[in-house]
Deep mutational scan, measured.
Amino acid sequence: SASLEDVKTAVLGLLVILQTKLYTLPASHATRVYEMLVSHIQLHYKHSYTLPIASSIRLQAFDFLLLLRADSLHRLGLPNKDGVVRFSPYCVCDYMEPERGSEKKTSGPLSPPTGPPGPAPAGPAVRLGSVPYSLLFRVLLQCLKQESDWKVLKLVLGRLPESLRYKVLIFTSPCSVDQLCSALCSMLSGPKTLERLRGAPEGF
């Protein structure tokens, strides 16, 4: 439990870093931090981490990651405290083949985003970082199938509809809506759902 406290501190630090690096160059920093966060949550489900502190780590990670939004130009952003989304000039939600690297070039400044813009690109060529939603999407499927803490599952179920409104997140990387529907149906009809959940409301 003591070591998990250190892990929790590290994860919180990564969330803060991602919130900053999403809007700064090099964009590969945001890509790497995002991948680290998603990989860490995957390990929770792989090794069945069920301690309360592990659940709190997942809760905080999902609470942040499910706020990711994308505009029509595929640029990622996060809402501010007033709910207004600021889109990044440097990070996009497109999935890119590994051989192309985590970044790609664009020939010049991008068109203005639909929300308040981030800082304008400084040079004639900007390297865009790929932060594909499919990585998070796979972890969300694991959550629906394996999550043991009701608070975490409730958060994910509550945030998913709003995330799905931003269709560009889903359609720019390999996210299977069929698998999502299947996971939701299995969660509702499967007898093991109630068996594994802690803290579920009576009558769920």
Rank of each mutant, 00 (worst) to 15 (best):
Y45L: 00
L128H: 13
L136M: 10
P161G: 10
L78R: 05
D178W: 03
T172G: 08
E99T: 13
R165Q: 13
R159I: 05
R138D: 15
L160T: 01
M187Y: 04
P112W: 07
S55A: 10
L110K: 14
Y34F: 14
V156F: 00
V152Q: 01
G83R: 07
P113N: 13
V16F: 08
E5T: 07
G83L: 05
L169N: 05
S88W: 01
C185H: 05
F204I: 12
P132F: 02
P191A: 10
L25E: 11
L184C: 07
T31F: 13
L197V: 09
K8L: 08
S176Y: 07
T31P: 09
S176L: 05
L43H: 11
V11G: 04
S176P: 10
T106P: 15
P191H: 13
L15S: 14
C93A: 06
A54E: 01
P116T: 14
K8W: 05
Y45D: 00
T172N: 08
A125K: 15
E97D: 13
L194M: 09
L136W: 07
T20F: 04
N80A: 10
Y23E: 04
R86V: 10
Y45E: 01
K192E: 12
S88C: 02
Q146H: 11
T31R: 13
L43R: 15
S28M: 09
P201A: 06
K192I: 07
V7D: 01
E195A: 12
T9Y: 06
L14G: 04
L110S: 15
A27C: 10
G115N: 12
V7A: 04
N80W: 11
L128A: 14
K46M: 09
I53W: 02
K46V: 13
L18D: 01
T24D: 08
T172K: 04
A10I: 00
L144N: 00
C143S: 05
S55D: 15
T9Q: 11
P132C: 06
V84L: 10
S111V: 15
C91Q: 08
R32W: 01
A30N: 02
L22C: 05
Y49H: 03
I17Q: 02
L144Y: 00
V85F: 15
R75I: 01
L4W: 05
R165W: 04
S55W: 03
L169Q: 07
S148H: 13
R127C: 14
S182K: 08
L141V: 09
R32L: 05
L51K: 01
T114Y: 13
L67Q: 11
K81Y: 11
L4G: 06
H40R: 00
G118I: 14
V92K: 09
E103C: 14
S3C: 13
D82V: 11
G115A: 13
P161K: 13
L18H: 01
S56G: 11
S55N: 10
C181P: 01
R159T: 04
I170A: 05
L68N: 03
W150F: 05
V177N: 01
P191M: 11
L37V: 10
Y34H: 03
V156G: 00
E195T: 11
T20I: 09
S102C: 14
L157S: 01
H29Y: 06
S72Y: 13
L164V: 04
T9F: 06
I53P: 05
L169C: 06
K154N: 09
A200P: 07
S39Q: 13
G129W: 07
E202N: 13
L76W: 06
S111I: 14
E103W: 09
T50G: 08
L15Y: 04
I57F: 01
M187P: 01
A183C: 10
L18E: 02
P52N: 07
R196T: 07
K8R: 12
Y95N: 09
R69C: 05
T50F: 08
L12M: 13
F137D: 02
R198E: 12
H44L: 01
Y45A: 00
L194K: 06
Y45G: 00
Y166F: 11
T50K: 08
L78C: 11
A125H: 09
I53A: 05
K46Q: 11
Y34Q: 02
V152P: 00
A70M: 03
D94A: 06
Q42N: 14
N80M: 09
G203N: 11
L78G: 05
T20H: 15
T172M: 04
I41V: 08
G158D: 14
P89F: 04
L140Y: 05
Q179N: 11
V177Q: 03
L140H: 01
N80V: 08
L164W: 01
G199P: 06
E97C: 09
F137H: 04
D178I: 04
C175Q: 05
L51N: 07
E162I: 13
A183W: 02
V168F: 05
C93P: 04
L136Y: 06
L22A: 05
L188T: 07
R138C: 09
Y166S: 09
T20Y: 07
V152K: 01
I17K: 01
P161D: 05
G158V: 07
S55H: 07
T24A: 10
Y34C: 03
R165M: 10
P112K: 15
G77L: 03
T24C: 15
E202Y: 09
L128C: 11
R58T: 00
G115H: 12
K81N: 11
L197A: 03
L140I: 13
H74D: 03
S72M: 12
K81H: 12
K167F: 04
Y45I: 00
G118M: 11
C143D: 01
P113M: 14
S148R: 14
L197S: 03
K151G: 11
R165S: 10
S134Y: 10
Q179C: 11
P132W: 02
P117G: 10
L37W: 00
